[in-house]
């Protein structure tokens, strides 16, 4: 499929395209994967996790030098401790997550049939807290993100595996995330699509644009710009703000659906989180 046809289908004629073609999440993923394979034919699954560092030798070298002593390791340790610390009622996070939280981060966000909505890993952590009488935490930074970092470290290398179950509510959440992804926003009228599909690998000013596929395999991440850890929703929010759009609310349903769609774009890519970004 040529770039033009795909772009028209996804942006201009979005409603028409989804209404007239019996496409679903499985067909979508094939089309999306093919798009990136066509544009980056030499990329291995691991290359996708290197994002923008595929396009600048200089930045790649700096990134690799930083990774000799990764800045996220303290967050992983802190997250591990938090995960193991009992709540006031004696329970702990391992009462909420299967396999004591080991090797499962690559399957989030998930559609939760009981609640009828998408649960991100951050939402699942907060849900666990609230079920056990604790206050929910900030979903963009701080302790909740450290727990995400620990759970991600405990699943590093596992292929991202986001499923859309055969449930009309799951499909609706997926489609909503997709609609948000391809919606132009802000005065510059950029959709996520523009920078991270069409212009992936090119530069905006001095910054190489990472391909959408693989981005979600790296979060949570320690960003030098933040000087600390942040969740993928923190990155989404910052991205929208950077080009002058009103950001979606972290922790909200729109963000969850966007994260669901976006992380699914990385299905099959090995989780390489937590990670480090400039």
């Amino acid at each position: 499929m040529t770039r033009e046809i795909l772009a028209v289908a996804l942006l201009a004629g979005f409603g028409l395209a989804t209404g007239s073609v019996a496409a679903g999440p499985a067909e979508d993923l094939k089309v999306y994967q093919a798009y990136f394979e066509q544009h980056f034919p030499d990329f291995t699954p691991e290359d996708y996790t290197r994002g923008m560092y595929n396009f600048s030798q200089d930045k790649r070298a700096q990134y690799e030098a930083i990774m000799e002593f990764p800045p996220y390791e303290m967050a992983v340790e802190e997250g591990q401790e938090l995960f193991a610390t009992p709540f006031a009622n004696g329970n702990s996070y391992s009462n909420c997550f299967e396999n004591a939280g080991i090797g499962i981060a690559q399957t989030y966000p998930r559609f939760d049939a009981e609640r009828g909505k998408v649960m991100t890993l951050g939402m699942a952590i907060n849900d666990c807290r609230v079920q056990n009488g604790e206050e929910p935490l900030d979903v963009v930074k701080g302790p909740l993100v450290y727990i995400e970092a620990y759970m991600s470290e405990a699943a590093r290398g596992k292929a991202i595996d986001i499923t859309v179950p055969d449930d009309p509510r799951a499909l609706a959440a997926y489609e909503e995330g997709k609609r948000i992804y391809f919606t132009r926003r802000g005065p510059r009228a950029f959709a996520c699509y523009h920078c991270h599909w069409e212009a992936a690998g090119a530069r905006i000013r001095g910054n190489e644009l990472s391909p959408a596929r693989g981005q979600a395999a790296n979060f949570p991440a320690y960003r030098s710009k933040w000087g600390e850890m942040g969740s993928i929703q923190r990155r989404f929010k910052g991205c929208m703000e950077e080009f002058g759009a009103k950001p979606l609310k972290p922790g909200g349903e729109d963000m969850a659906n966007l994260e669901y769609f976006h992380r699914r774009l990385s299905n099959g890519i090995p989780l390489n989180a937590p990670n480090n970004r400039f």
């Binding site: 033009e4 772009a7 028209v8 996804l10 942006l11 201009a12 005065p187 510059r188 009228a189 950029f190 523009h194 920078c195 069409e198 212009a199």
Partner: peptide
């Protein structure tokens, strides 16, 4: 540019959106 070039273009509509 969406009108003058391609509807899916990335180029911002500088005039229309008051930039």
């Amino acid at each position: 540019a969406q009108k003058a070039s391609k509807p899916y273009t990335m180029m911002p509509p500088f005039g229309r959106n008051g930039l």
